[in-house]
Design a binder for these strands. Structure first.
Length: 802
DNA sequence: AGCACGCCGACT
DNA sequence: GTCGGCGTGCTC
């Protein structure tokens, strides 16, 4: 009688590769080191072809196949290779983390290996390491390749060393040199030094970059020019970009705001009590903290964090951008001087991210909980004792990452909270319509803070009609200007919001009527003074100014519209030399450390007026600011985006919240051409609830979120592609067909609001349906039409409709 | 990502 | 004839 078939390779396990092809291949678990040393979530070195690569061991569960890219059992007829050696002693990823990342991979239609690779710092993705050895004669260190090729005897020896802790993986710190600008433009370089100028422009656009990245972008030929720039001091070079060192960050952070008072008022205490109850259930719940600007949400976050730490569980505090995370960090550092605080954001050096990752993964059961403060990517740090996740300014679009590994931090936080039994707390003065709707229907329990801390009043809001104003001559109406003057005269400060950087957003040829446009994007070029360039705000490219009209060769251009640079100039001229005007926008804050410099100079009252884009609308606390001016409130309102009103309302509420935070009352002047817009009506009375109700009714009427799931398919192809008409027709046909089949409403393809970017024409298709899976199904029907020429991407719940 | 294999152009 | 360019395809 034939014996039952032998079970396939009992000692086989899948490992997800951290480099292409990112599949989870099957490997035999070797006898040395003992099998107990190989645990799921651990990084291991595996042979692949003739090389050795890093991979992560997966649990031996079914149900992982889709994300793994391979079946649970290995294909027949393949001789399994053994795992070469573990890359660490304790798994980097816990089972819970691996599971969360698997869900993320499934949702995004990516391989688990791809997700793991995008989450890990560069140094943890390479298998190219050495092991340092102790106590073995004539063998101080061994390359992984040699470990993989070792015979049984050597493996025995190594195994004993590994078990005894006498074999240590040596971190492959290949320190990369960074370079960055030391000066704002204009740069003292002769115009003929094209390579030097290329480098300066590149660094201005990209900020601090690793030297190899710069050389790859501009060609190896610029090496000499870079050396020259470093020699003359225009460019700095070093291991750590500025703003990364702990000590450099601290002063600006501490200056950015007073620490929140340690005692809670009645409202805060009530909010804390209900949140605390949810926290201590450890059931993975989500809560909304809705509190008006200045009501002390941070105080509540910190009090809740204290309870979580006391219970022995770690805390993650997230802010939408680094500058705000920085404020949270100094508040947390003051509140918990004894706790270990990790500050994390995406633009740290790989070495530092690696150290943080390792440190957190290496924490054991009995270790004290930690507090992590950072931007969205901090969610990926391996905290296995997670108890609380706080997302401050939860309505902010920055919590969604669009490129590489697309994810929405709010959603990921929700999944993680459930998996870890942690509390997810979303905080905002102007919650996302979707969140507030969930709160109103009871799906998302809410705690509220309605009063400003310390009895401060919400500022008085008035509207200034600028219908008749010619935009170039009068950026501010006379009465607005008078308010600013008065504020300065009283020794107080003013903030002017103008959501458009540069000097003039268009140059109009007076001879032929042509407007200078970017040849790659067809976007109007913006004049940037000082740099003397016309710049494209979408691709960063530009042409030197002055130039001839490309259409008629004329030389007389009329600047049109307004930008922050010109606002700064106008105010400086008008207010006279006793008043200092500062500007804060992406251009002013390009150079590392400049953002902090500008904010702290304003906080020290070295300037009376701060002009800027929405960068200055959030979080910052300047007690002497009593006047806020919004130069053009209509700007964002007429964008082709169903969220235009919500966004404008949120921005104006936030920036209004900057006025009157101290003991002096604040005033807000909003310049508009249409003060009757419903967005402004509710703003006047600081009535979020009223705005919400009106906006929600509109969303319902026009079938937009939260009443429907929205998907945006971005279609793009080279501008000169001849087959585009047929392709668009095919997209229209197929999507309608699939839409009918799955009950999804399909609109388009229509030219995108920005119809061309970087040499590619852009079209949009809009899907509306009951659930995400239906939208995905319709998109799946379009996927076969995609190739190198025609690019298609599906953005579920798009935040950027342009 | 690496590394093989393979199919065409300029050389000791 | 061979050395070597990098296009295509595979890796448990």
């Amino acid at each position: 009688m034939a014996s039952p078939p032998e079970p396939l390779q009992v000692n086989a396990q899948r490992a997800a590769l951290l480099s292409p092809p990112f599949l989870a291949y099957h490997y035999r678990i070797p006898d040395t080191p003992p099998a107990a040393g190989f645990l799921p979530g651990m990084r291991v070195a595996v042979p692949l072809g003739n090389t050795v690569r890093a991979a992560v061991l997966l649990p031996q569960d079914a149900g992982w196949d889709t994300a793994a890219g391979t079946a649970l059992t290995p294909p027949e007829g393949i001789a399994l290779k053994p795992v070469a050696w573990p890359l660490e002693r304790v798994p980097l990823f816990s089972a819970a983390h691996l599971d969360v990342l698997r869900q993320l991979a499934l949702r995004q239609g990516m391989l688990l290996g791809q997700v793991l690779a995008s989450v890990l710092p560069a140094g943890l993705k390479v298998a190219d390491i050495r092991y340092r050895l102790q106590g073995i004669p004539k063998l101080r260190s061994l390359r992984i390749r040699d470990v993989a090729a070792a015979d049984a005897a050597l493996r025995q020896t190594l195994s004993r060393a590994w078990e005894a802790g006498a074999m240590q993986p040596e971190a492959a710190f290949r320190e990369t040199q960074f370079c960055w600008l030391s000066q704002d433009p204009p740069w003292p370089v002769r115009p003929a030094a094209v390579n030097q100028l290329k480098i300066l422009e590149y660094l201005w656009e990209h900020g601090p970059v690793p030297v190899p990245v710069l050389l790859a972008a501009l060609g190896d030929g610029v090496r000499e020019s870079l050396r020259r720039l470093v020699d003359v001091g225009l460019v700095r070079q070093g291991l750590v970009p500025p703003g990364q060192q702990e000590e450099e960050m601290d002063p600006a952070c501490v200056l950015a705001g007073a620490p929140p008072p340690p005692t809670l008022n009645e409202e805060q205490a009530a909010a804390l009590a209900s949140l605390s109850e949810a926290l201590h259930r450890w059931q993975g719940e989500t809560r909304l903290l809705y509190g008006v600007t200045g009501s002390g949400k941070t105080t509540v976050y910190l009090a809740l964090a204290r309870e979580c730490l006391r219970a022995g569980r770690s805390v993650v505090l997230l802010a939408p951008e680094i500058a705000l995370a920085c404020n949270l960090r100094s508040a947390a550092a003051q509140a918990f001087p004894e706790a270990e605080l990790i500050f994390h954001h995406g633009s740290q050096t790989p070495a530092r991210r690696e150290a943080q990752f390792r440190k957190l993964a290496g924490r054991g059961e009995g270790d004290a909980p930690v507090i992590v403060v950072g931007a969205r990517s901090a969610l990926f740090l391996p905290l296995h004792d997670l108890g609380l996740i706080v997302l401050d300014e939860e309505h902010d679009a920055s919590f969604k990452q669009e490129e590489r590994l697309p994810y929405q931090a709010k959603e990921l936080g929700y999944v993680m909270a459930r998996r870890f039994g942690a509390l997810l707390l979303l905080g905002s003065a102007t919650p996302d319509i979707k969140s507030f709707h969930a709160a109103q229907t009871g799906a998302l329990p809410m705690a509220g803070l309605t009063r400003r801390h310390g009895g401060a009043q919400l500022p008085a809001i008035e509207f200034v009609d600028i219908k008749g104003l010619s935009s170039f001559d009068q950026l501010l109406a006379p009465q607005t200007m008078a308010m600013v003057e008065e504020t300065v005269r009283r020794g107080e400060q003013a903030i002017i919001l103008l959501n458009r950087r540069g000097y003039a957003p268009a140059m109009y040829c007076q001879d032929c009527g042509h407007v200078l446009r970017c040849p790659q994007c067809q976007i109007g070029l913006t004049y940037h003074k000082g740099r003397e360039r016309m710049l494209c705000h979408y691709c960063g490219e530009g042409v030197p100014w002055p130039c001839l009209c490309p259409q008629c060769g004329g030389i007389s251009f009329l600047p049109l519209g307004e930008g922050t640079q010109r606002m700064e100039e106008v105010l400086t001229r008008h207010l006279g030399r006793d008043t200092t005007v500062l500007r804060l926008d992406r251009d002013a804050a390009r150079r590392p450390g400049r953002l902090e410099e500008i904010l702290s100079a304003f906080a020290r009252k070295e300037a009376q007026v701060l002009v800027g884009t929405q960068m200055l609308s959030k979080g910052h606390d300047f007690p002497d600011v009593t006047q806020v001016v919004v130069a053009d409130a209509d700007m964002g309102l007429n964008l082709p985006d169903f969220r235009a009103a919500e966004r404008t309302f949120q921005l104006l509420m936030q920036v209004s919240g900057r006025a009157g935070r101290g003991d002096k009352p604040g005033r807000v002047a909003i310049q508009t051409r249409d003060a009757s817009h419903y967005c402004f009506e509710h703003l006047k009375t600081h009535d979020y609830q009223g705005f919400f109700e009106e906006e929600l009714a509109r969303r319902k009427k026009w079938r937009y979120p939260p009443f429907v799931k929205l998907g945006l398919v971005r279609v793009s192809f080279p501008a000169e592609w001849e087959g585009h008409a047929a392709a668009l027709a095919a997209l229209a046909g197929r999507s309608r067909e699939a839409g009918r089949e799955h009950g999804v409403q399909v609109m388009g393809p229509a030219p995108a609001p920005l119809p061309m970017l970087q040499g590619r024409k852009r079209f949009h298709l809009l899907f509306k349906g009951e659930d995400w899976s239906r939208l995905r199904a319709v998109f799946a029907a379009l996927k076969p039409l995609q190739d190198d020429t025609l690019r298609l991407t599906l953005d579920l719940d798009p935040l950027d409709m342009m």
